[in-house]
Computed example of a mutant assay.
Amino acid sequence: MSRHEVHIGSNIRIVRQLRGMKQTVFADLLGITQQSASKMEKKKNVSDEQIAEAAKILQQL
């Protein structure tokens, strides 16, 4: 059996895109640079605090 691993950053990017939000807007709402948002979306693991903040922003749409 192969184990499927979740890529949190990729999931955040997918939800952001489904919501029609540009990465720059997402970064502004998080209070980070666009480059930092890009790095976060490329990470397999994201801190619980970042996940919670991203969820708050993406749920508002």
Rank of each mutant, 00 (worst) to 15 (best):
N45S: 12
M1G: 13
M21F: 03
Q17W: 02
I32M: 15
G20Q: 08
S47E: 04
M1F: 11
T24C: 05
E49R: 08
E53L: 14
A37H: 06
L29N: 11
G31A: 08
A52Q: 10
M1L: 06
K56T: 12
G20E: 05
L58G: 01
T33F: 09
Q60K: 14
T33Q: 04
A55E: 12
T33C: 07
S2M: 09
M1Q: 04
A27S: 05
Q34Y: 03
S10Y: 12
V46W: 03
E41R: 10
K56Y: 14
F26R: 03
A55K: 08
A52N: 07
L30W: 12
I57K: 00
E5W: 14
A55F: 14
Q34V: 15
T24L: 15
S38A: 12
A37Y: 10
I32H: 01
H4N: 07
S47T: 06
S47L: 02
Q35S: 13
Q17T: 12
L18Q: 11
F26Q: 01
D28F: 13
K42D: 00
S10H: 13
K22Q: 07
L58M: 01
I57F: 00
L29P: 00
A27P: 01
F26S: 01
D48T: 08
S10V: 06
S2P: 04
L29K: 15
I12G: 02
Q50C: 03
L18E: 11
Q59N: 05
S2C: 03
A55H: 07
L18P: 03
R3L: 11
G20M: 05
A55L: 06
A52T: 10
M40C: 10
V46T: 06
K44N: 10
I14Q: 13
Q60W: 15
T33W: 02
L58V: 01
T24D: 11
Q23N: 04
I14R: 07
K44S: 10
V6S: 04
G20H: 07
V6C: 04
I14W: 09
M40W: 06
Q60M: 11
I32S: 03
R19W: 05
K22E: 09
I51R: 07
T33L: 04
D48F: 03
A27W: 05
Q59S: 06
R19V: 04
L29M: 15
K43I: 02
R3D: 09
V6I: 11
N45A: 12
K39W: 05
I57W: 00
G31D: 05
V46F: 12
A55P: 01
M21D: 00
M40V: 15
Q34F: 12
I12T: 06
R19N: 13
R16E: 02
A37T: 05
E53Y: 04
G31N: 11
V15G: 01
D28W: 07
E49L: 14
R13E: 06
A27F: 14
R16A: 06
A55G: 00
A37K: 03
A27E: 08
Q17H: 14
E53W: 06
A54N: 00
L58P: 01
L18N: 11
Q34M: 07
K44H: 13
I32A: 08
V15D: 02
V15F: 13
R16C: 02
I51A: 08
V15Q: 07
I14K: 13
L58Q: 00
R13L: 08
L58S: 00
Q50G: 00
K43T: 04
K42H: 08
L61Y: 07
V6F: 14
L30H: 06
E49D: 11
M40E: 02
R13M: 09
N45M: 09
R16D: 03
R3V: 10
